[in-house]
């Protein structure tokens, strides 16, 4: 195992650590808002990772200015496109989760999912 690689690719390592933080928050937090925050961290880490994969040091964003059309002048645009798509998905999912949270809070006056489950069992529905 060569730990030198981690130092060289420290940005990717950071992205993966963020993914881990977000993933475990989404899985293990009891509070619904914290879960949603975790989900956003997870998604954002993925955009960081994708953006890094598309970036080539010393090159510019792929917008043609001053008539420079050489492929060598620009970074890879596809990951940026993927990030945009991912952001759209993430926004809509966050909105859906937040609206579900509001519904649950109005009904049970708590944000704790386990507590809501015990209340539901008591209701016996």
């Amino acid at each position: 195992m060569n730990f030198g690689n981690i130092l060289v690719n420290y940005e990717e390592a950071v992205a993966m650590i963020l993914f881990g933080i977000g993933f475990s928050n989404l899985l293990m937090q009891k509070n619904l808002i914290k879960k949603i925050v975790g989900m956003n961290i997870m998604d954002t880490s993925m955009y960081l990772f994708l953006a890094l994969k598309g970036y080539i040091a010393g090159r510019k964003a792929p917008i043609v200015v001053n008539g420079v059309q050489s492929m060598e002048a620009y970074i890879n645009p596809i990951p940026s496109g993927l990030v945009l798509t991912g952001i759209v998905v993430s926004v809509s999912v966050t909105a859906l989760m937040l609206s579900l949270t509001i519904r649950l809070y109005n009904r049970y006056h708590t944000l704790d999912l386990d507590e809501i489950s015990t209340m539901l069992k008591k209701e016996g529905l």
């Binding site: 993914f19 999912v93 859906l96 949270t101 999912l113 529905l125």
Partner: peptide, 19 residues
């Protein structure tokens, strides 16, 4: 209440999966 809670749980597991 049941279905909203179920939908919440479904979303959480699904989002873990899609992540």
């Amino acid at each position: 209440g049941r279905t909203i809670e179920a939908a919440m749980r479904y979303m959480i597991m699904s989002l873990l999966g899609s992540g």
